[in-house]
Design a protein around this nucleic acid. Structure first.
Length: 558
RNA sequence: GUGCCCGUGGCUCAAUUGGAUAGAGCGGCGGCCUCCGGAGCCGUAGAUUGGAGGUUCAAGUCCUCUCGGGCACACCA
């Protein structure tokens, strides 16, 4: 049976409303979209709708009366619906016959690793661009959060039927990059005993000295005392390459792989800037003032117009970004999502203004802002910006708590809340740590299945066992939870909220642990044992699929 | 000063985009291991959702004001 439960109930409801219209009970033109939700309270049934309240306004009839009309014309013969009740101010609650639960089990075992996928995206192409840190230093913890969110969101969208491309934009040119090379060059010379003044706004980090040392190791004093074009270029390129490869490695070790590493330089090589400027000029969104070229971003809600080409003829960062987004647009994505750190939020308006000026469809570009992370150690905040702070870099964090924990902790709260990352909890291999709690459930299942096999009971096929033996309260509870994975994926893809999955996982693990404590899987009763093995195998599959989406590993023993 | 984000038990966070009695974890208190992994489970106490108005059948959620916290306000990237 492929028909979705929700669809089926929606049809039943529509049928009833139709009848009521024909009977003259409801005088309406359009039927509002029927919203079905899973009630928090079990006594309110399995699914619930507020359609009676929705109709109340237009009909000017009490919601309860409307609900009565609807229910009296409801035809539930031969459907999955077992009982219908009206409750509260006019909710219509549906209780389902238990057969659907066993169908869920069939579905999970049939679909295996594909269970949980939904076809929301219908193959639409989405690009997610995230991290995109200037290659001027190593990634820190905040970037890690962006990376985790971007990567998880991408996987969620994939699971929801979108075609997703993950991209990292490399700002590999401009003043900052020149400055970066200059910083290394000065350190290099200093190390070799040359007196050179360090630039005021240069990069002061220890890693700059390390890179300078590396240059000495490879090239000795070849560039000592030099300040010609060739040496400047050398230091710039050497440093850029070095830092970029470090970033790539950090991300890889964090489990994040990009489909495209997009270089800002490549845009200029193709002279794309001129093209876009021309286009904007034609549309009359550019003007000259005080020797600079300005974008009329105020026409699209920005607070002020923005400079695109500076007085000195050098394009601004915004110019690059406009060209870059034009490039994204030309690549044919249906949708582009940029994930930025909170410190860039002031940039959204001008970027969106530019998108509008270029005439992109409404909603083509969306920017998602990830709030900062506060690290907590021994109950105190760890300074992030100060150099004394201990776990500043992403690499250090991964080393300290591991990839899985780091990812989960970044994802377990809504990305737009300024969350705390408690290192002590993250490090603890105990019940306090939600990651272990979840992985433990998975490992426990694997262990039970293994144990059963050792005792000669193999995990069978659904057909060979009587699933109706799974009738305990905790079993029903568990199956219902398994059934909601698809809804969770759908919802998190719709709202772009990866944390729905982390909370779901915790919840599911909890249901399993509870079940495990109350009932034994392996018993003298072979039939029952087989049924329960199938149930826990389904739980295993759902845990696996959800953890895979989040990029968290699933150890079979811990 | 202006704009954006956030204020939910002692602490960290949820709440199916406006739904029914606001839920979890940690911490507190009290229980559960002859048994498949106790890295587990159960019970209990704790909330005027920062505050004040408003919108409606219904507000933690939407609107206005207000108070606290964060961030951003460049011809920097």
């Amino acid at each position: 049976m492929k028909i979705d439960l929700a669809d089926q109930i929606e049809n039943i409801l529509l049928g009833s409303i139709d009848k009521n219209i024909k009977q003259g009970n409801f005088k309406i033109k359009d039927i509002p979209k029927i919203i079905l939700l899973i009630p928090k309270d079990k006594s309110h049934g399995d699914l619930s709708t507020n359609i009676a309240m929705q109709l109340a306004r237009e009909l000017r009839v009490k919601p309860l009366d409307i609900a009565n009309f609807i229910v009296s014309n409801l035809d539930i013969q031969g459907t999955i619906v077992d009982k219908v009740k009206i409750a509260g101010p006019g909710f219509i609650n549906f209780s389902l016959s238990e057969n659907w639960l066993y169908k869920v089990i069939d579905e999970i075992r049939e679909q295996g690793e594909n269970y949980g996928k939904v076809n929301l995206g219908k193959g639409k192409r989405v690009q997610v661009e995230f991290v995109s840190v200037n290659p001027t230093g190593p990634l820190h913890v905040g970037h890690g959060k962006c990376a985790a969110v971007g990567d998880a969101l991408s996987s969620i969208l994939k699971a929801a039927g979108y075609e997703v491309e993950k991209e990292y934009y490399i700002n590999d040119q401009g003043r900052q990059i020149d400055l970066l090379g200059e910083s290394v060059k000065v350190r290099y010379n200093n190390l070799l005993g040359e007196k050179k003044e360090f630039p005021d706004d240069g990069y002061k980090g220890e890693y700059i000295v390390d890179i300078a040392k590396e240059v000495i190791g490879k090239f000795q004093d070849k560039y000592k005392g030099r300040d010609d074009k060739e040496s400047r270029e050398f230091f710039r390129e050497f440093t850029l390459k070095k830092i970029l490869s470090g970033i790539k490695k950090d991300l890889k070790d964090f489990g994040v792989e990009f489909d495209v590493w997009f270089s800002e330089r490549s845009l200029y090589k193709q002279n794309k800037l001129q093209e876009v400027i021309e286009l904007l000029k034609q549309k009359d969104f550019l003007y000259e003032k005080e020797g600079a070229l300005w974008l009329k971003s105020t026409e699209f809600g920005d607070e002020k117009d923005r400079v695109v080409i500076r007085e000195n003829n050098i394009p601004t960062y915004l110019a690059s970004d406009i060209v870059y987004h034009q490039n994204k647009y030309q690549r044919g994505f249906d949708k582009v999502i940029d994930i930025w750190g909170a410190d860039h939020h002031g940039y959204i308006k001008r970027m969106k203004a530019a998108a509008q000026a270029l005439g992109y469809p409404e909603g083509f570009l969306d920017v998602l802002i990830v709030q900062f992370v506060t690290l907590i150690k021994n109950g105190k905040e760890v300074g992030m910006s100060t150099r004394g702070g201990k776990f500043v870099t992403l690499r250090d964090l991964i080393r300290e708590v591991g990839k899985d924990v780091a990812r989960y902790f970044f994802l377990m709260r809504s990305y737009d809340s300024h969350t705390e990352f408690d290192l002590d909890v993250a490090k603890s291999q105990s019940m306090e740590n939600p990651v272990y709690y979840i992985q433990y459930a998975y490992a426990r299942i694997c262990s039970i299945i293994k144990k059963a096999e050792q005792e000669g009971i193999k995990l069978g096929k659904n057909k060979e066992v009587n699933l109706h033996l799974l009738d305990k309260e905790e079993e029903i509870e568990l199956i219902k939870k398994l059934s909601s994975l698809k809804e969770v994926v759908r919802k998190s893809a719709l709202t772009w909220k990866p944390h729905l999955l982390t909370t779901y996982l915790y919840d599911l693990a909890s249901s399993f642990h509870k079940y495990y404590t109350v009932h034994r899987v392996i018993t003298e009763d072979i039939e029952l044992t087989k049924a329960r093995l199938i149930l826990i195998d389904c739980t295993r599959i759902v845990l696996l699929n959800a953890l895979n989406i989040l990029g968290i590993s699933t150890p079979e023993s811990m």
